[in-house]
Every structure is written in structure tokens, then in C-alpha cells.
Computed example of a mutant assay.
Amino acid sequence: MTTSAPESVLDVISELLVERFEVPSDEVRPDALMRDLLTDSLMVVEMAITVHEVLGVKVGEDELRDATLAGFAASVEARRTDR
């Protein structure tokens, strides 16, 4: 078994978008707006729940809609390290 560096929050969220939410990988860029990646309100709610389950950080739906992928990941990362 090999050990690798832990994934960044940006990597984890990007992977969730592609694998769970079936966003085309070429659309998942740091400067992409989350509202463009999560195309309906159900996806936004599901992502908020998934981020809480996977990363242990509660996020608001407005936060998801208003941020870029990189900005959202940075916000989640900051709250993870505040613990």
C-alpha cells in the first residue's frame, strides 16, 4: 500500500462535483461559479449536505451559489482548520 499526501479541499470538492453530481470534468475549474456547476436547487442542497458529511463543515446554500469553486473551497478549508 502506498501513502500519498492528503487531498486538498479543492480536490475533494472537485471530485464530488464530477463523481456524485456528474458535472463534466472539463467544467470543474477553480474560477467556475458554483451556481453554474450546481444547476438546480436540489443539487445545491445535496452539495451542502455532502460537504458536511465528507468534510465536517456546515455550509449555507447562499454561500454555495455565490462563490467560485476556489473561493468556496478556501472558505471550507478555513473553517476546517479553525477547529
Rank of each mutant, 00 (worst) to 15 (best):
A73P: 12
T39R: 05
R20M: 09
D82A: 09
S75I: 02
D66H: 14
S25Q: 06
R79H: 08
E19R: 07
D31M: 14
V12A: 00
V18N: 06
V51C: 04
D66I: 09
P24E: 14
H52G: 04
A73V: 08
M43K: 09
V18Q: 14
R29I: 15
A78N: 15
E53H: 06
R83E: 12
G71Q: 08
L42P: 06
M43W: 05
G71K: 13
D82H: 06
L37P: 05
V54Q: 09
S8M: 10
S75H: 07
S75A: 09
E22R: 13
P24M: 02
L42Q: 08
L17I: 07
T3E: 11
L64V: 04
T39W: 13
V45I: 13
D62E: 05
E19N: 13
S75P: 13
M1Y: 12
L17N: 13
T2W: 07
L42M: 07
S8F: 00
H52E: 11
D11A: 05
V51Y: 00
V9K: 06
D11I: 02
M1W: 11
D36I: 02
P6N: 00
E19P: 05
P6K: 03
V23I: 08
R35G: 02
D31E: 15
M43N: 13
G71W: 00
S25G: 07
D26S: 10
T81M: 03
P30S: 03
R80G: 02
E15T: 09
V57M: 12
E77R: 09
T68Y: 04
S14L: 12
E77F: 02
V51P: 04
V18R: 08
V59S: 05
V12D: 03
